[in-house]
């Protein structure tokens, strides 16, 4: 049983790490919109902004898929753990 619990918690931790990476990126991505005027009116920024924001958007879009993928695996493992627990309890009762 302990193995399933560790595996489940490991996946939850993995999910949290991936989520936080996404949160950090999204925060910086949003911050671009709040740049001080010195950058907003800076001529080269018009040319630099598109590839930078596109890169952030790509990362955000990819990271948004992590939660669903990891969540499904974590749920699956949790179900397995619960199922085994029930089996163990049932076996204990039979004995």
């Amino acid at each position: 049983m302990g193995d399933f619990k560790v595996a489940y918690e490991g996946l939850v931790a993995e999910q949290a790490y991936v989520r936080d990476t996404g949160v950090a990126q999204a925060s910086v991505s949003r911050a671009i919109a709040g740049f001080p005027g010195a950058v907003k009116q800076w001529g080269p920024w018009d040319a630099l902004r598109p590839p930078i924001t596109a890169a952030f958007q790509s990362l955000d879009a990819t990271n948004s898929t992590a939660t669903a993928g990891l969540g499904s695996v974590a749920d699956l493992l949790h179900q397995v753990q619960v199922a085994y627990e029930h089996t163990e309890i049932a076996n204990t009762v039979h004995q």
Binding site: N63, T65, A68, V73
Partner: peptide, 8 residues
């Protein structure tokens, strides 16, 4: 283009 997703 997504993180790997596992299916039972």
């Amino acid at each position: 283009g997504t993180w790997p997703r596992a299916e039972s």
